[in-house]
Design a protein around this nucleic acid. Structure first.
Length: 161
DNA sequence: GCCAACGTTGGC
DNA sequence: GCCAACGTTGGC
């Protein structure tokens, strides 16, 4: 049978250091552009996103890195304006409004996980072997999550540790 | 177009 | 604070 061009909605994982941008801050702001991604693979992942796709919000670079909440894509990929801001932290002279090199999506706050699912908890789950996030040296700030992995992490979030 | 050097990420 | 992993840069 021929594969349809239409694909299932996908799931994602958005990493952020809470000091830089936390899930609590997204709660207050409701929607944020996912700006500042300067990695080609992460950018390509954002180009793949469709309206309504869901993702985990993951806090990194802390004592207990963990998925803490759920977000929804509410605007598909468009040029990352922070790359145009001369003198700004994310300025990249190779990216121009005519030929933008970096893209971003907008994500909306959906809800917190009942319990954060720590990286350690995910590593301890045999069914999550092979999850992109758990691979050695995985640094991608925007990653795909399979429907199967999505379901399992949600399940784990319902257990208290 | 190869690849060594360098910088960054992020868990530990 | 260390350092492994990996992307990027730039010399050739």
């Amino acid at each position: 049978m021929r594969q349809k061009a239409v694909r299932m909605s996908r799931y994602w994982l958005f990493k952020s250091e809470p000091d830089a941008y936390s899930f609590e801050r997204l709660h207050d702001e409701r929607v944020t552009p996912w700006s500042g991604v300067r990695n080609v693979v992460a950018k390509n992942n954002m180009l793949e996103m469709k309206l309504g796709d869901l993702g985990f919000f993951y806090h990194s670079s802390i004592a207990q890195p963990a998925a803490v909440g759920i977000v929804r894509v509410v605007r598909t990929a468009y040029p990352d304006f922070t790359a145009f801001e001369r003198g700004g932290e994310y300025y990249d002279p190779r990216s121009t409004p005519d030929k933008p090199k970096w893209m971003m999506v907008d994500v909306e706050y959906v809800e917190p996980l009942a319990h954060p699912v720590t990286l350690a908890r995910m590593r301890a789950e045999p069914r999550l072997l092979g999850m992109s996030l758990l691979k050695r040296g995985q640094r991608l700030s925007v990653q795909p999550v399979t429907p199967h992995e999505w379901k399992i992490v949600l399940e784990l979030s319902k257990q208290s540790e």
